[in-house]
Each structure stands twice: as C-alpha cells, then as structure tokens.
Design a protein around this nucleic acid. Structure first.
Lengths: 349, 349
DNA sequence: TCTTAGCACTCAACCACCAAGAGTGCTAAC
DNA sequence: GTTAGCACTCTTGGTGGTTGAGTGCTAAGA
C-alpha cells in the first residue's frame, strides 16, 4: 500500500480516466482518446509516458504492444479505493428501491429474496442476498414436536419472524409426556439465545440446575446436540443470466467458470462472507481473484452488510464482470443494505 | 402421425443413421459418411436420394445447400418414438445410481435433491427433480402454533417424512386456550388428507358437525383458508453449468436463453409438468419448442414420473441440448425414477 | 528537467482472393 | 430401382495487403 499512495496528481488523473473509460467502453484505452474524452490540457505523448509508468507500477496492462491499456486488478483496486467518487442515487432510484422493499413481506427470508431480485433488476448484474445467519438470530420460541417414534421436529421462531424447522433423529424414543415440560423448560431458558448457541448455552448453565430441572436440562441437551451446527445461511441469487449481456462473457469459457461458481451455493456463500469480514463496517468491493478465492478471476463483487443494533447479521451484494460501474453500484448496494436494515428492524422488537 | 408410419425400411434405417451420427459427432451428416460408418450395402448416391426424400418429409434439414443433413425436431421425434432402442444400463451404472440413493436421507426432499445431483453427474446434463407435490402428500400430523398476536405457524408432517411449516396471518388474535382443542380436532379429521385438500375436506364435512365441534370446525376452516393454494412444489436443479460443454451452447445467445429459463423456477416447473401430463405412464421426452413452451428451442428434456401406489407424485429428468444420447438417458431416467419410487415407499406406510 | 512534436513501428481487424474438401443434385447408364 | 459420374455449391482455412489505432523513442522546446 505504501507506493500506492505515492502516485502523483497527474498519474491519479490518468489512471482514473483510463479505468473510467474502460468501464464504459469495454475497449482498451489509448492515450489520444483519454486526452479528447477528458479535455486534458496535455498532449497524447505525455499521457503515453504516464501510462507507461502506470504499467510499470502494475496498474495498467497491454493486451499486446500497441493496443491501448486496460486496468489490472490492482488498477481497479486503486480506482475503487482512492479515485472514484461514489455516485449518489437519484430520487427516482431511491424511490424505486424503496417501493420494491415496501411490499408486504412476512419475514426476513422474504425480504432478502426480494432484495436479491431488486438488486438484479436495478443494477443489471447478478443480485445476491444472504438470509440472517443462525448466529445472529435470536430464539423467540422453541417447540419440540415428536412425530414418529424416534424423530422430532425442532420448531424455532426467531426474531426475524422466521419459522425454522429442523428434524432430528433421536437414538431412543422420547416419552410423550415429558414433552410439555421440556418445552416449558426450553422456552424459559433459551428465549433470546442465538440459534447456534442453544446447546452451548444450556451446557454452560447445566451446573445451576438441580433435581427435576437438571434432568430436563440433560434431556434437552441430548436432543439439541443432535441439531447440526454451522448450518449455512440461505442464499438468494437472482438475475445471473444478465451476465451474458457483458461482452467479457461472450467468451464461453469465462461464462462457464462463473456459472460453475454460481451453481454452488456454499462457495458463493463463502465468497460473500469473505468480503464481509474484511471490512466489518461499510460496504466492500472484491475484485477478481485478488483474495485468492478460486473461480472469480473474471468477476467482481460489491457487498454491504445489513445490521441489527450495530451487529452485522448478513450481507447483500451484486456480482458481475470486473468492468462494472462501481461508483453507482456501491451506492446502490449500500443504500439497499441500509434499507434492509430498516425493514428488518420492524420484525425485531 | 399417419404419414410418419409410412416410412419404408430403408428410410427408417437411414434416418436412424443420420440422427445417431449427428448425436455423436455434433456435425452435419453426409451421405458418404453414413455409408461408411454403418457399412451399408448401398452407394452414397442412393443414400442421398433417400436423404432428399427425408428432407421433403420434414425429418432432416440442411444448413445450406451442400452441407450434410441435420435432424429437425420432427426427425428427433421420430427417432425417439420409433427408431431408437433403449440402451439398458450396465450393472456398474445401476450400482452407481443405487449407491447414490442409498445414503442416509431423512425425507423425500433430501431424496430428490440427491436425485437431481446424481442425474447431473451420471448423465452430464442438467439434472432436475421435483419434490412430491402437496396434491399427493398426505397429512400425518398437523399442528397450529401461534407465535405472535396474529401470526401462527401451520406445521404439517406428511407421509414423505417431510416437515412443512406455513406461516399465516390471522385477521384477529387466536385465543391461546382454544389451540389444543383445535389441534386435536384437526388431527382427528385431517389425518390422511392431501395437503392441498385440507380446507376443502373440512368444508365438505362442515355439515356433519354440531355444537362445540361445529365451532371448532368453523374456526379451523377460517385459519386453513388463509393457507395459500397451489404452492409450487420445490424443484431441485443441479449441474446446469455442464451444458456449456456441448458445442451448441458455445453460441452465447443460445446459452443465455437456456440459463434464463433455468433461472426461473416456476417456468421450469411448468415444463416438467407439461412433459409429465402428456403421457401419464412411463417416461417422456420433450424435444425443442415442439410443444410451444417458449425458451426451449434448443433443448430437450427427458423425464420420468415417480409414484406412490400407482399415483404419480412428482417428476424427475434431465435437460440438455437436443443432441443428447436419448437411448441411454431415457434408460437412466426411467431406472432412477423407479428407484426413487422404491426409496420413497420406505417413508410411506 | 519536464513537455511535446514527429516519426517509425507494431499489431489487430478487415477484406479479397484462392484452394481444398465435403457434400449435394442431376443425368444417364446399368 | 440403383449407381457412377460430373458439375456445382458452400464452408473452411490460408495468404497477403491495407487501414487505423496506438505505441515507444528521440530530439527539440519551454
């Protein structure tokens, strides 16, 4: 990062011009066109010199001698981090996004499905939205519902209005008459606990129970420990086919790579997570394979977290070619994330 | 269909040869190559004459004068309906499919997710599997679980081992103390009913209840009529990215069309349904846009229904380019459907 | 020392042209 | 009815020339 900061004003200007132009035209950018398009008071020759410097520094790249320049991942990175000015949304755009999220949506999962849909349509990229993770969802109510000899459903209502059912197989049948007591016990002690912490919470409190309570606690724990941990958050994806509109995905190999990635929910989820954790506060932009995740050599992801009382509970974003209108997209994604935060706060009380 | 049957033995032979060759080579098929490849005791010129006839009849088509012939949709249709001999599975293949479905799978949805996955891998096409519809699932147990003033969860355990929860919003709060009586009532009267028939069943029996039972029935009916009807069956799709391997989808426009289709679950479900209902018994093959469904000009779908006690409850299949190895694929899909039927019968008792 | 004009050079893209090859349709002979 | 022969068509791949955008370098100017 050190030498990155050392770029002079003119280098910054020209790098900005090249990246911006390439994003809009999808073509390699030449010195003359930069001068003309930005009305620079410089000759093409000067610009050429600067561009050669920028190439040496690893920000630009030539497909072949004597073609214009194209940004490298690092060039995009610098552009995104230091050069671009976020392009605020117009009132129309804000209104449109708000309208889409104001529909009657009954729980957080519906909100996020709708979010992925609207992001896809507004940005014309692939829209992504991750449902609130079980790590951040609080139990509002929990019921064990045995429905066969050794099978029972764990029904959890969380503070996002969601109803989650997990079925577990118990090694031995559960005595039907203990169920009401178990449920009373579980609700008394687990309300407000995060879903992924159920068993852990109970385990730590185990010492504090005696007699009948202790037996209930132990029985409950046996059951809850059968609930699989680290269940992946649901991930909504919409508008992936729009990627074909971009000229870079006319190349079938690249398209294929991306669609392979999009097909695997788990890898995709990991991707969103990765971008989210790097910068806990505020949106984040991932460019190309920079961070080493395989299969995204040709794509960028713009994400923003949504929150409940200052805690990130999930991530939304858009995925598309590296040549995307970052200034606008990051504004859209950030704004939408804020709105999701607001909409979800209605569920949480 | 009438003139279709009129093809002579030689025409049938040559149509078979052309379709078969085109399926394996992906190239237009010329007269000479047919003679050589199949060791025909005919001259290329004779074959040419026959091919010209087949073209007049609409079974074959030329990209341009003096290129080889390619099957039309109708040519594929005839091939599939009258010419191909289903290619039985090898013991290895059967074993492989069985192994994949023998895993510990807890309910029908898991079985069908796994089915779509295995079909994708075994056939190298896109694998599709539709979960049992609510029209064919029987209620084994039903619980109303109010969790907020005006919201309640309807939890249904069906005979496929699935636990389904539907949340509904009631116009007025439900008195908590009526819930146990309601649940007893519902379970007493709805066990064995198909999920999509809950409200209807109750409504027809309404006359037979009196006094307290009548009140319960009416209350239950008010709640159940809030459950949305015609909820789409869940659809599992896997391996869509493998379609890029086929040369026909090197053309980005075609690829895009298909991926647009695959992105919309509802259209895809309609597609499976369409193919299923045409021939209630046995597998079915849909070729190109023949049946008028939009967006599948370039694809074929091979499906087979799976059943519970002679009743079709869902459909599985594969989707790919029209140039697919039908004889093998239909065997695979049929066999797998039979296996799914068998595996699911374990849940149903 | 920085900037710029000038110039030679490179390379992709386009076009025209040609040759080869695969395949056809037609006709006349078997 | 079948087939050999032949002229014709059309794609594919290769060659060569031209154009235009763009570069790097050098030397002169500020």
């Amino acid at each position: 990062m050190t030498q990155v900061q050392e770029l002079g004003e003119r280098e910054r200007l020209i790098l900005h011009a090249v990246v911006h132009t390439h994003i809009t035209t999808a073509e390699p950018v030449g010195s003359r066109s930069v001068v003309k398009r930005f009305g620079l008071d410089l000759s093409p020759a000067t610009v050429r010199n600067v561009m050669a410097d920028l190439e040496d520094l690893g920000f630009l790249q030539q497909i072949h001698t004597s073609s214009g320049r194209v940004p490298t991942d690092r060039g995009y990175r610098y552009y995104v981090d230091y050069l671009m000015r976020v392009q605020a949304l117009t009132a129309r755009e804000r209104a449109r996004i708000e309208r889409e999220l104001e529909q009657q949506l009954n729980d957080a999962d519906e909100v996020l499905r709708q979010t992925s849909h609207l992001l896809a349509r507004v940005t014309r990229q692939a829209g992504l939205a991750e449902a609130p993770s079980e790590a951040s969802a609080e139990i509002q109510r929990l019921d064990l519902i045995p429905f066969a000899a050794c099978r029972l459903a764990v029904l959890i209502v969380d503070n996002f209005g969601r109803v989650l059912t997990i079925t577990v197989e118990t090694p031995e049948p559960l005595a039907p008459d203990t169920v009401p007591a178990l449920n009373r016990f579980l609700n008394a002690h687990l309300r407000g606990t995060h879903i992924d912490q159920m068993a852990a919470t109970l385990r730590t409190r185990l010492q504090t129970f005696f007699d009948e309570q202790r037996m209930l606690a132990e029985q409950a724990l046996r059951i809850l420990s059968l609930v699989p941990q680290n269940r992946p958050a649901q991930l909504f994806l919409d508008g992936a086919d729009q990627l074909f509109e971009q000229p870079e995905f006319q190349d079938v190999d690249k398209a294929r790579q991306v669609f392979g990635l999009l097909g695997g929910q788990d890898r995709l989820a990991g991707l969103l997570r990765a971008t989210a954790t790097t910068t806990p506060a505020g949106g984040k932009i991932l460019i190309g394979g920079a961070d080493g995740t395989e299969g995204l050599e040709n794509i960028s992801v713009v994400t923003a977290p949504y929150k409940i009382s200052e805690e990130t509970v999930g991530v939304i974003g858009v995925l598309g070619s590296k040549r995307m209108p970052y200034p606008h997209l990051s504004a859209i994604v950030d704004y939408t994330a804020g709105l999701v935060t607001k909409v979800l706060s209605r569920f949480v009380r």
